[in-house]
Design a protein around this nucleic acid. Sequence first.
DNA 1: TCATAGCGATTACGGGTGTAGTCAAGCAGG
DNA 2: CCTGCTTGACTACACCCGTAATCGCTATGA
Lengths: 122, 122
Amino acid sequence: MQERISDAELAVMEVLWEEAPLAAKQIAGKLSDSRGWTLTTVKTLLSRLAAKAAVSHAQDGRQFLYTPAVEREDYVTGESRRLVDRLFGGKFMPLVAHLAEKEKLSDNEIAEIERLLEEMKS
Amino acid sequence: MQERISDAELAVMEVLWEEAPLAAKQIAGKLSDSRGWTLTTVKTLLSRLAAKAAVSHAQDGRQFLYTPAVEREDYVTGESRRLVDRLFGGKFMPLVAHLAEKEKLSDNEIAEIERLLEEMKS
DNA sequence: TCATAGCGATTACGGGTGTAGTCAAGCAGG
DNA sequence: CCTGCTTGACTACACCCGTAATCGCTATGA
């Protein structure tokens, strides 16, 4: 089982999932806007992500180029599983039911989801 | 926004959601089996939960009786929202799509969800 | 009345997280 | 060749978390 990615680290991953490989400076460039982080902060997060084997880095002259080592897809699946296990006894139905109820979906949205599910049927 | 409840604290909350009010000792009784926690550990968690205002406690002679101060329903909703916001851009649809695909919902389950959604239509 | 058992409160401590400063090394420019 | 900028590595530090021992108070039984 792969180590967990913290909230702050996730922000870094999101940047990399959108575009990779990138150098620390470029990542920091994007995150200093949205998050107000300094370059060193981003570098720390990158080291931790590397330690967790969530990103891989390849030397490129003086600097490193970072690339995600986990797919966003897989991460999302894992986190969803975790929530479902923690709160819904491992069953997906209740999650969907719960959200559907709480989020007051419009008839249109419901129809859309139904269409999607229909396609999904094998 | 209410403070977050940690994993260990959640175990305590689950006990209280099932039955309340309870004294620390009774809660510890249930959790020492399932989790192997000592009484003091449970007391620490209860203090932290009280500090976070997630439980309320009323004096009962020498001891406290603890009661949840947040509904499980609300907690579950909050955590689900959090997941959806963090990973699915706040949209419900992609979550369902993701789950349906990744978790290989059976046709039966899909049908069940559809039934549920159908009921939901106003 | 006095010891004691039983409570919550306080303290502990190693590991993770958020956020960042400082250090050491190497490459570039004078 | 030396100096300084750039870059990753190391260090820092406060706070949260998991897990627990110990302290201090008080009611109760002898």
